[in-house]
Computed example of a mutant assay.
Amino acid sequence: MIVHFYTRPGCHLCDDARLMLKLVREDVAFDIKEVNIEEDDTLHEKYMLMIPVIELEGKIIQYGQVDYATILEALLR
């Protein structure tokens, strides 16, 4: 299972989300593919006001303020 994590440098919410993903990964096995939206114009335009964005199988799990329970629930489905 691969979770896409859309982020950008200097984003404090992204730092918090990264930590949250690592906590969830202690309970559920998955890989994190971190993507810097500033390296892709299309992604930057799509996510610039939403980051951090956590996505699984093309579906956004959560964005902005993320929490452990929401991520865990989505991954256990």
Rank of each mutant, 00 (worst) to 15 (best):
M1N: 11
M1L: 05
M1I: 09
I2S: 10
I2K: 15
I2W: 04
V3D: 03
H4N: 13
F5S: 02
F5R: 00
F5Y: 14
Y6I: 03
Y6W: 03
T7N: 00
T7H: 05
P9W: 12
G10E: 08
C11D: 09
C11H: 12
L13D: 09
C14I: 08
C14H: 06
D15K: 13
D15Y: 13
D15F: 10
D16S: 14
A17Y: 10
A17G: 10
A17Q: 06
A17M: 10
R18S: 15
R18H: 15
M20T: 15
L21I: 11
L21S: 11
K22R: 12
V24Y: 07
V24G: 00
R25S: 15
R25Q: 15
R25T: 06
E26D: 10
D27N: 12
A29F: 10
A29N: 14
A29R: 14
F30G: 08
F30K: 13
F30M: 04
F30V: 06
F30H: 06
D31A: 13
D31C: 00
I32W: 02
K33S: 05
K33P: 05
E34R: 01
E34I: 01
E34Y: 00
E34M: 03
N36W: 05
I37W: 12
E38V: 10
E38I: 08
E39W: 02
E39L: 06
E39P: 00
D40R: 02
D40W: 02
D40P: 02
T42W: 11
L43C: 03
L43R: 01
H44P: 00
H44K: 13
H44Q: 09
M48P: 00
M48Q: 10
L49M: 14
M50K: 13
I51Q: 01
P52W: 01
V53E: 04
V53M: 03
I54F: 08
E55C: 07
L56R: 13
L56I: 06
L56D: 07
E57Y: 11
E57H: 13
K59Y: 02
I60H: 07
I60F: 09
I60W: 05
I61P: 04
Q62E: 11
Q62D: 08
Y63R: 05
Y63H: 14
G64I: 01
G64D: 06
G64M: 00
V66L: 04
Y68G: 01
Y68P: 03
Y68M: 08
Y68I: 01
Y68F: 14
A69D: 14
A69E: 12
A69M: 10
T70W: 07
I71L: 12
L72F: 13
E73T: 12
E73R: 09
L75V: 03
L76I: 08
L76A: 12
R77N: 10
R77Q: 12
